[in-house]
Write a protein that binds this DNA or RNA. Structure first.
Length: 454
DNA sequence: TCTGGGGTCCTAGGACCC
DNA sequence: TCTGGGGTCCTAGGACCC
């Protein structure tokens, strides 16, 4: 048996904790570059603002309806998330943090009234942190997700579901008939694992509700769709197929990509941006103690513009897997130069560290054999391993990460990119995304902490 | 004028092998 | 005109998630 706890309109709720005047007001939080709405208060949803709605299409609501838009403050949301997850963990013995605003809790072995327990945890999170959340309980993860959807919808749209299911919905307490009746009033597209495409296909085939999907037979599911959807249908029937993942594996790839604040037409700002993206990805690479076997770089124009389109990517293999920022940046810039072409208004670039593997012991890492060099030369791989001593680089990276953790990101930077060009402020501001509505780092920056006056 | 970022899994099809 | 069968591995693309 599982619970799914999910923060309501999470980013907006985090902002409201520190600006109570935003309660009851339509609020959206915008994505990087102030591009799209990625979180919406209930009032903003009522105005018709969709998830991912481009800001330029809804900004007129600022004047007409008092819509407030804020730039995303991920440092704040991450910190508030850590606090919420700590309190959520009190619900049961095992926890899977599924995303920044939700977690699954394994409830096996928990005695007593689980519904009451869920209400208590929900109240604690609201009282101690100021964050509203909803909790769903079900026999499987998919049913817990569905229960959470019902708990949220019952709260937000009175009359859509029985009022007693608002905030905390425990499907395991219901009779079979009541359980089925709820599934029969839930659109199939609300089921976890059913997206827009599969949802449309299912409706086309006459499968309109969660109950319809639960009752589809195996042959139809495998023939018409995939094992993934079959698993989802089993889970809806109460047969647990997806385990709690309380010890997540290291990531298989690490990406850092950004849209630019303004179109970029020259190489210099690209070099700076790609160096920065690679450095950020490398920090996360070392945090999970992995090494990358290759670096992917891409640049592209905006698909929304009529101007000439250009989109290229390249994978640069490394002679040896590494977690050294200098080598990763070297590979990334090598790739960038190979795909860069002047004459285009580039809107976005990114770096992905791929072919990740667990870091080798230091001794094995330091060894470069004649045979491996010969192989890499023959295969045309670029040997960035020769850029510096591996043994010293490990200590250097550790120092780099510690200094930046202590004094803030960017205190120490790789100079390789900047050394090749004069430093002009306009170079940086060209690729840096817009963040015109950022709130303070209330809980993550000493100088921006809220001040309470008696 | 202005349209996010970061992941995972599954499958089909091509390359290659015998 | 006529062109096997079976297997593995890899990759690109599609679909999903938040």
């Amino acid at each position: 048996m599982f619970a799914l706890l999910d923060g309501n309109n999470f980013y907006v709720s985090c902002e409201r904790v520190f600006r109570p005047s935003l309660q009851g007001v339509p609020v959206v939080v915008l994505s990087n570059n102030d591009g799209c709405a990625i979180a919406r208060s209930n009032e903003a949803k009522a105005l018709g603002v969709r998830m991912g709605h481009p800001w330029f299409q809804i900004r007129h609501l600022e004047a007409s309806d008092g819509l407030v838009a804020l730039s995303a403050n991920f440092a704040l949301y991450g910190d508030m998330s850590d606090r919420m997850m700590s309190l959520a963990a009190g619900l049961g013995p095992t926890q899977e943090v599924y995303s920044i605003d939700e977690c699954f809790i394994g409830l096996d072995g928990v005695r007593g009234d689980l519904t009451a327990r869920a209400h208590a945890v929900r109240s604690r999170i609201l009282n101690w942190l100021g964050l509203p959340c909803c909790i769903g309980l079900g026999a499987t993860k998919t049913l817990a997700k569905l229960a959470n959807h019902i708990a949220k919808t019952a709260e937000r749209k009175p009359g859509s579901y029985p009022a007693e299911l608002a905030q905390v919905c425990d499907l395991t307490r219901l009779s079979e008939d009541a359980h089925d009746a709820l599934l029969a009033t839930t659109d199939v597209g609300e089921v976890w694992g059913v997206g827009p495409r599969i949802g449309a296909q299912l409706r086309e085939a006459g499968v309109r509700t969660a109950l319809d999907l639960a009752r589809l037979d195996t042959a139809t599911l495998r023939g018409g769709w995939s094992v993934t959807l079959e698993r989802t249908a089993r889970e809806l029937q109460g047969l647990s197929c997806i385990d709690l993942d309380h010890a997540p594996q290291p990531r298989q790839q690490i990406a850092c990509t950004r849209s630019f604040g303004q179109p970029v037409t020259t190489l210099a700002p690209l070099i700076e941006a790609v160096s920065e993206f690679t450095s950020r990805a490398a920090v996360r690479l070392r945090a999970q103690d992995s090494a990358a076997g290759a670096v992917l770089v891409f640049v592209r124009t905006s698909p929304f513009r009529k101007s000439p389109q250009y989109s290229r990517s390249v994978v640069v293999p490394l002679a040896h897997p590494t977690q050294n920022t200098a080598r990763l940046v070297g590979a990334a810039l090598h790739g960038l130069r190979s795909i860069y072409q002047s004459g285009y208004a580039l809107a976005k670039a990114g770096v992905m560290l791929v072919q990740l593997q667990a870091c080798l012991p230091r001794d094995a890492q330091a060894g470069t054999t004649v045979g491996s060099v010969a192989t890499s030369v023959r295969q045309g791989e670029f040997d960035f391993e020769s850029l510096g001593s591996t043994r010293d680089a490990g200590h250097l990276m550790k120092a780099l990460d510690e200094v930046n953790a202590r004094w803030g990101r960017g205190t120490l930077k790789i100079a390789s990119a900047q050394a090749q060009m004069p430093r002009h402020d306009e170079v940086a501001t060209q690729w840096t995304g817009k963040q015109e509505r950022r709130t303070p780092g209330y809980t993550t920056c000493w100088s921006e902490m809220p001040v309470v006056r008696a």
